[in-house]
């Protein structure tokens, strides 16, 4: 075996080791976070943690239901505002915008994705919160679900828009031609052929956007108020629900981990496990939708 052959073999081993690192990291993340949470599950109890909404570390009360509801509510609000805008933007970029306009809007979307979350948080803090505070509703502080949903909607917009645009562009051109040749208008072609054909990619884009929303941390801390209370309408008007303050799962971890000790720290890791599990389910379903669709369309070929 010549020298260069030995180098060749050695390189292969080193590269293989690097490829394995990602597996080790995933396993280590799962292992450490789960291990640190074990005491919490054992001493506090699973149902006590997941279904109680009182979080008072000083009195060893660790219910995270309010945070789960907070995370889900703010994500819901962000989806409500962000998805139509993002899908509209994706359709616009893929099907409607002339090349010149595309070359302005697409980098804008890209840049939106790159802006640090603390900058969005600061913008929300300085602009949105004072604006919302002007709404004359008793108990309204400006901080809360509305401000955080708006900030989050803008943050998930580029994620959803760019993945959905790719999905729409991946629809074969001959579907469009076939539809137009049958006397459909361009809009009919988009809604009746292109969007249904790109459906799985579009749904995956939305699901990944939801994952992104659930995982956002710092911007949420900055505008949501962080009170550990079950979000509820401030007045008889159910819409004031969105003026309620809240805390997200992510915010709970970030705000308290640096000084937490003992069971309190364990409970924060348990919060992490819940978040981790939620995100894994969401990402797995996105993957399932995409691969499932690929398989069924491959079968058709």
């Amino acid at each position: 075996m010549s020298g260069r052959m030995i180098v060749d073999k050695a390189v292969k081993v080193v590269l293989f080791a690097s490829a394995i690192i990602s597996i080790l990291i995933v396993l280590a993340i799962g292992f450490f976070i789960f291990r640190e949470s074990l005491d919490a599950w054992a001493k506090i109890g699973i149902s006590e943690m997941l279904f109680k909404s009182v979080w008072r570390p000083g009195q060893d009360q660790y219910g995270i239901l309010a945070m789960i509801v907070g995370s889900v509510s703010v994500t819901f609000g962000a989806i409500l505002m962000g998805v139509p805008l993002a899908l509209g933007c994706a359709i616009f970029l893929a099907e409607i915008a002339p090349a010149g306009v595309q070359s302005i809007v697409r980098p804008a979307v890209q840049l939106l994705a790159g802006i640090p979350s603390v900058v969005y948080g600061l913008f929300g803090l300085v602009i949105l919160v004072p604006m919302i505070r002007k709404l004359n509703v008793p108990g309204n502080s400006g901080f809360g679900l509305l401000a955080s949903s708006i900030v989050l909607a803008v943050m998930i917009l580029p994620t959803i828009a760019s993945i959905a645009e790719d999905a729409i562009r991946a629809v074969p051109e001959n579907y469009r031609q076939g539809s137009l040749a049958l006397g459909a208008t361009k809009w009919q072609t988009i809604t009746k052929v292109v969007l249904p054909a790109g459906k799985s990619g579009i749904i995956a884009a939305i699901i990944l956007g939801i994952g992104r929303a659930l995982g956002e941390t710092m911007a949420m801390i900055m505008v949501i108020g962080n009170s550990v209370i079950m979000p509820k309408p401030l007045t008889a008007n159910p819409l004031t629900f969105f003026l309620s303050q809240a805390r997200t799962l992510t915010g709970n971890i970030a705000v308290e981990i640096n000084y937490a000790t003992g069971l309190h720290a364990n409970a924060l890791f348990a919060t992490g496990v819940v978040l981790f599990a939620l995100i894994m389910i969401i990402n797995a379903s996105a993957r399932w939708i995409i691969t499932h669709d690929q398989r069924s369309s491959e079968k058709a070929r």
Binding site: P172, N174, Y175, Q177, G178, S179, L180, A181, L182, G183, A184, T185, Q188, K192, V193, P196, A197, S297, A300
Partner: peptide, 30 residues
Amino acid sequence: ALRQNVGMVFQKPNPFPKSIFDNIAYGPRV
């Protein structure tokens, strides 16, 4: 309106990813 009156068949068959029924009903439906 013109394309309703002048139909076209392409080089590569391009049925929509829909049922046979929906493929044919597509034109009348639009």
